[in-house]
């Protein structure tokens, strides 16, 4: 079972598997439909590190069900790596023949809870593995809502019987942009549903906060992380890095930072 401090696998790590094995407790792998590619990427780690799979294009919040071939490919990958769990985003990005790469926040309504929950439950049953859903950043939400964002997430968790992949950076950025209290948000989420965290550095460009996955996780994000580790059953952290990344050495500082927080609340991992 995945637990401890992990890293989102990136191609920049290909040549240094020994460093990953030395420094992280598990891997998060972004779903690729080609199983040979998965095997090539993860070969050095299978059987040595637990793996979780992160899916990005199922659009489980869309009214239309996810594309069958994508779901089947996801199951092949999850089975191949014996994933501890599979994650997706609590959002939508597809309708009819339109598909965008962005994750749009669902309207915080009963109908959206019902639609997303059905797709999550169906997928969870098909995969035969736990699903956890990620909170997304958003600059725009549907103006008419029945619930707060946190209450909406809570209801989906309970209705779909799934976990939460809490992206702490996303939570922090949303709380700043939309001016809400992130601790109140966290207090709304059932404590036993927070399964995994995403942590990443962010940037500010022309006054806009961007979840840019750079290095250097903000101290305010780490403060929230400490709250989560102190108040929930969460036992798994993933560092996400897509920029300012040439080799695994570039993430070592963030790994050490997360390791210190993890050990403070959960003790040292036996490795």
């Amino acid at each position: 079972m995945a637990r401890g401090v992990g890293i989102g696998y990136r191609s920049q790590f290909t040549n240094t598997p020994e460093l990953l094995l030395q420094h992280v407790d598990f891997l998060e792998y972004n779903q690729r439909p080609n199983l040979e590619a998965v095997q090539a990427d993860l070969g050095p780690f299978l059987g040595k590190l637990p793996v979780v799979i992160h899916s990005i294009n199922l659009s489980l919040g869309s009214v239309e069900p996810p594309a069958e071939q994508r779901v089947e490919a996801l199951k092949r990958t999850a089975d191949f790596v014996n994933a501890s769990w599979v994650s997706e985003h609590l959002s939508y990005s597809r309708v009819g023949d339109i598909e965008i790469e962005n994750f749009i926040a669902l309207p915080y309504t009963d109908e959206a809870i019902e639609v997303a929950s059905k797709h999550i439950l169906d997928l969870q049953n098909f995969l035969g593995r736990p699903m956890i859903m990620e909170n997304v950043t958003h600059h725009i939400t549907w103006p008419v809502k029945q619930y707060s964002e946190a209450e909406f997430i809570k209801r989906v968790m309970l209705s779909a019987d799934c976990g939460l992949l809490l992206d702490v950076t996303n939570l922090y950025l949303n709380s700043v942009v939309h001016k809400y209290d992130p601790i109140e948000y966290l207090k709304t989420i059932p404590r036993d549903r927070v399964v995994q965290l995403h942590l990443a550095g962010h940037t500010e460009t022309d006054g806009e906060l961007v979840d840019s996955h750079v290095g250097g996780i903000d101290p305010k994000v780490m403060e929230l992380t400490e709250w989560v580790m102190d108040n929930t059953s969460c036992d798994a952290m993933i560092i996400e890095r897509d920029n300012q990344l040439e080799t695994f050495n570039d993430v070592l500082e963030d790994v050490a930072l997360c390791r210190s927080v993890y050990q403070k609340y959960r003790g040292a991992m036996e490795r």
Binding site: V63, Y92, V95, I100, V115, V144
Partner: peptide, 16 residues
């Protein structure tokens, strides 16, 4: 409130 209509409008707004 129809989720289908909202999603169709929002996705179209996102690219148009």
């Amino acid at each position: 409130m129809s989720l289908q209509q909202i999603q169709s409008l929002m996705l179209n707004l996102s690219i148009k």
